[in-house]
Design a binder for these strands. Structure first.
Lengths: 192, 192
DNA sequence: AAACTAACGGACGCACCCGTCCGTTTCGCT
DNA sequence: AGCGAAACGGACGGGTGCGTCCGTTAGTTT
């Protein structure tokens, strides 16, 4: 008995917390980070106060809501590194990351202009970027990636990709796919 | 004397109108179309009511403020068409338009997601795009531009370019230049 | 110079969003 | 079942931006 300190989390609290996170994911994906907190609360079926009690600020909410996406990002890069052909791995990273960012309007903003206070988020981000750099080195050695590729180019691509604000998700996805294709072509060694 | 209908435009009105337009150009260039109308009024040294009397809506103000940029756009494309080497002309269009859009934060938004009600603005836009299409055809015939380039690719590039929201204008310009370079490389015929 | 009127701008109402307070409900434990 | 605390949510205050009203200013005309 004396061992447990405050383990008893009330069931409704836990329930609401999950629902808020689900709602946040939906709303942020559809409308971006500018979506009002109220909208998240509404969709979760809770009052604003409850939302703010669980997540004191929008930044914290977004960080937690995007944890999954962040993991996906890491997986994508790890998969790319695991690919026996570094250039193919590099291409798959570009394609899949562009697709991920196109599907979720809020995530790009979170990833590129990263929150100042989300510690473990930026930490993961840095680690992922390091892996990309490693993959890029391999791809350069394989002779398929331009020698003058720099990591900032990837950020550039992500920011640019975020500029694609097509109305329907379908259009957005198509545009993003086309964009990834262009970018890959731009990064491939030219035979000059 | 009876010929003139309402020629008498008061001098202060004319003066203010010009100042408002100047202010709008500065503010929209620096902060984008999201900049508050008040800021424009403040910088022009007039009250909000005066601003709204001259330009009943933000859309109208932006349209008039960007008329010059729109003309510049046309000039850029015309120059490109006049270039004896269509591919060089095409490249110059990409470079200069990206630069133009990077320098002015608001113009891209105005150009890509064009206002629904700005008639002669969209008209000019269409005409300019037609010229680009013509230039693209020539560049394709010259053998340097990919056969599968479509006009939507240019819109895609502009939208993507608008995604580059670097803090300082200098950084933004540099990023945009790099971006133009990547894009040109992507559009060049590959020797596969 | 006087008066007529166009133009001005401070102040207003409205809508939206953020984050918080506090009275009420509901869970969990005994 | 009853009680204490944790959690809830409606309502509030603060801030910002848009577009408008109306009393005041100042250009123009005779």
């Amino acid at each position: 008995m004396p061992g447990r300190l405050s383990q008893t989390v009330r069931s409704d609290a836990r329930y609401n917390r999950e629902h808020i996170l689900d709602a946040a994911r939906e709303v942020f994906a559809a409308d971006g980070l500018n979506a009002p907190m109220r909208e998240v609360a509404r969709r979760a079926g809770v009052g604003p106060a409850t939302l703010y009690r669980h997540f004191p600020t929008k930044e914290i909410l977004a960080t937690e809501a995007f944890a999954g996406q962040m993991r996906t990002c890491e997986t994508i890069v790890d998969d790319g590194l695991a690919n026996p052909d570094p250039w193919q791995g590099f291409c798959s990273v570009i394609e899949r990351i562009c697709e991920l960012h196109a599907r979720d309007r809020g995530f790009t903003a979170a990833f590129t202009s990263a929150f100042p206070h989300a510690v473990d988020f930026t930490e993961r981000r840095e680690r992922t970027l390091k892996s990309v750099a490693k993959l890029a080195r391999k791809a350069k050695r394989s002779g398929h990636l331009r020698q003058d590729f720099v990591l900032d180019d990837l950020i550039l691509v992500l920011m640019a990709n975020s500029g694609i604000h097509a109305s329907s998700p379908a259009t957005r996805a198509a545009a993003s796919r086309r964009f990834a294709e262009l970018v890959i072509r731009a990064f491939r060694t030219s035979p000059l």
